[in-house]
């Protein structure tokens, strides 16, 4: 018993002060929201698009230049890997430290040199009233690599302490307000995901976490998968990444519920 108390004292209080205080430090090499600089793009260069393993980049070509000045990037497909940044001779793409990536619509995730992510709209009306202060989440993993699951799970540890926001993971779909899906939605999980969703009482929302759940990720187009959650459910919140950092996931959840983040600012 004494050992436990000594350990508790020496390990100290570990729950972060975020979102009242500053957000936890991200490593200097962290790859967050990408920024595209079309001015640096050489005419007709498609190197980044050619090398991208998930076809997340649409290059500007002579034909579409009027409609699309510079490359278009789909954060729902992006693995936040280093293929495009290492191949680009002009440093036209770089990943910033910005961890805020969540969006309410899949098309909001299409960014260009002139259009970054729009502000995230919080839930409104009855949904906000019912779920804003208590959100019970049923997590279902369906055809991914378990990295998203791991970083969703981390939010339950003492460092992040998700429960202080009234958000919790529940075992039964009957107790759940939200279905959080990870993975590309394998055909082998189709029935189980459908049944879980159907077993949840209304009102309910669906959250897609990670490139797989948004677009199929690296597995998009495989006959074994259904290319993400939207093929089966209406999705209310998209959190990109491969996997998204826990801070990115938490930020998405807090903003959709309309919680206050940092210096009293609502985002």
């Amino acid at each position: 018993m004494l050992d436990i108390l000594i350990a508790r004292i020496s390990q100290g209080h570990q729950t972060m002060t975020y979102p009242d205080g500053p957000s936890p430090p991200l490593p200097p090499r962290f790859r967050g929201l990408p920024v595209l600089d079309a001015d640096k793009c050489a005419d007709g260069c498609t190197l980044c698009a050619d090398v991208c393993p998930t076809q997340a980049i649409t290059p500007a070509t002579a034909e579409n230049a009027a409609a699309m000045p510079g490359p278009l990037m789909d954060l729902g497909r992006c693995l936040f890997c280093t293929q495009c940044t290492s191949i680009c001779p002009a440093d036209a793409i770089h990943f910033t430290q910005n961890h805020r990536l969540a969006a309410r619509r899949a098309q909001h995730l299409h960014i260009s040199p002139h259009q970054s992510l729009p502000p995230l709209e919080e839930l409104s009306g009855r949904l906000k009233k019912l779920l804003g202060r208590s959100l019970k989440i049923r997590v279902v993993s369906a055809g991914g690599c378990n990295a998203c699951e791991a970083d969703v799970n981390v939010l339950g540890t003492i460092g992040w302490d998700l429960q202080r926001f009234g958000i919790d993971f529940v075992a039964s779909p009957r107790h759940a307000d939200a279905l959080l899906l990870t993975g590309a939605l394998s055909r082998n999980m189709h029935m189980a995901v459908r049944k879980t969703w159907d077993a949840m009482p209304d009102p309910k929302i669906a959250i897609a976490v990670g490139a797989c759940a948004i677009s199929g990720g690296p597995y998009a187009g495989h006959p074994e998968v259904l290319n993400g959650a939207e093929s089966v459910l209406p999705v209310d919140l998209f959190i990109p990444g491969c996997p998204p950092h826990p801070l990115t996931i938490l930020d998405g959840l807090l903003r959709v519920l309309g919680k206050r983040i940092a210096d009293g600012q609502k985002c």
């Binding site: 090398v51 393993p53 890997c81 369906a142 055809g143 394998s186 082998n188 189980a192 495989h222």
Partner: peptide, 25 residues
Amino acid sequence: GYQHRGVERAMIGASPARAFSFAQT
């Protein structure tokens, strides 16, 4: 089998960038 997403099949003839992203996941 519920997590089956066809990686071994997709590795056949995959480009280096794609094969690398499969290996990582």
